[in-house]
Design a protein around this nucleic acid. Sequence first.
DNA 1: GCCGTTTTCGGCCCGACTGTTTTCAGTCG
Length: 573
Amino acid sequence: MPVHNTDISDVLSKTADLLEIKGENQFRIRAYRDAARTIGGLSKNVADMVDEGGDLSRLPGIGKDLASKIAEIVKKGTFPLLQELQKEIPGELSIIMKVAGLGAKRVKAIYEELGVDSLDKLKEAVENKRIRELEGFGEKTEQSILEGIKRIKKGKERLPIAAADQIAGPFLDYLKKEKKIKDIIVAGSYRRRRQTVKDLDILVTCSKGSKIMDRFINYEDVGEVISRGKTRSSIRLRSGFQVDLRVVPQVSYGSALHYFTGSKAHNIAVRKIAVSKGLKISEYGVFKGKKRVAGRSEESVYKKVGLSYIEPELRENRGEIEAARKKNLPDLIDLKDIRGDLHIHTNYTDGHNSLEEMAEAAQKKGYDYIAITDHSKKVRVAGGLDEKELAKEIKKIDKINKELKSIVILKGVEVDILEDGSLDLSEDILKDLDLTVCAIHSKFNLTSQKQTERIIRAMDNPNFNILAHPTGRRINEREPYDIDMDKIMKEAKKRGCILELNSHRDRLDLDDVHCKAAKDIGLKIAISTDSHSRGDLDFIKFGVSQARRGWIEAADVINTRSLREFKKILKRK
DNA sequence: GCCGTTTTCGGCCCGACTGTTTTCAGTCG
């Protein structure tokens, strides 16, 4: 069994949980949690780093001790400390800690007093009203535990960013009707444009006497008010999705926005720098002693600690702070840099709109070019085209291009990569196209080695241009297929092939971590939508924000170039 | 257990809200 970064990260956080339940030194516990987070957000495969004899202790938050423990986890899937802990305490307790409102202290009490060591036993204890007998627990705690268990069992706690957009829009419009609001913005992972978000953190400044909290908890879609205070309230929508509202004074707006945007790891790192300079950062400002020295704007907060402004998408403590210190931050790609869309379907296969309609919609977005890439014959459910049918579509595109003035339609196809790595259409037709978008739509379960070889063999075909949705994952629905992404990226770069960042709301594939990995080796990417209708063209914004999270600049993306330049890059060496 | 722009030892981010309590611990973000 290959050990993935997420496996290592899970082992480390489980260790942290059990150490915490045991009542160990809190800073030792934090070290394990920091290491878990570092590994979880790493673009490189740690197992490979260990195999190649790389020095793990160079990673932030990982020293000599943890480096050797991680090497052991890579080999065995676990390590002695965790095994020892599990002899003393049931490992299941770390799952109980995931119940909202239960931390280490309470889990320990419930375990020691009542012998509860699983979610089922916890539920039983609540139902028998035994939790309330414990000191410091009461009826309300029992109720919230019960709901916490329900939510864990329901799973799928995080919403795709596109779904969060649909909630945030109307909610903000509703709140804005309170006249005394001055600033209102959604912070948190939503502002950092993570692929999924757990909740919405709305930040508000307003003038005196505002009724914003009342307005907030009375939104028509509220299912439950979790807490209500003067500066902070939390509600859960009927869908179960949590929304928090924080009110801060205007003079603190920048530091509050910085604080609530996170990520937590980023904030902690910035605060540490502040401490080293004799300053203190809180959501109310940057303080020297009791004097506020910055905080009205985010820029002022960064400036005070000697950093240049860091875009929200970069704030994950993945090297952005070091880069900001050295004034070395990337000039991130912007939506307006995109000059064309390279993955579009029409009603020739499973799209809803005609060639003309898609071209017209793309023109309205101000694009210079688009590529029409309908499916190939293997994808029967989508009405994939054979050589003859594709030839017809090509002819039609030539005809339309003669009439079009401000946009060019490129002739393409989304051609299937068959199990043996060959492409689903013959050489004769592929060479007549401007570009190919190549993808896997079957046999997802091959071993990592076979799946990787399949893709590399496909890239050996000189007609191969862009690898579409490279991992095949669908957010909250389907895991990525097992492939050696490092290897695929290196081989793609060698052959002059491009990797797609598929911007479809459920895909976002490549993800941010992979984007960074591509950039690190100088592999170019294409940001496309996989549109099946006119409206889907707008998905491009999700792709661009994902790319920004991966440190991508306009120069790293082929469809930010002029048509001529872009065609030059596309030519295989 | 990590780490160093006064440190190789002695620190380690900071504040709000809840529930169960009579002054605060625990949890969360």
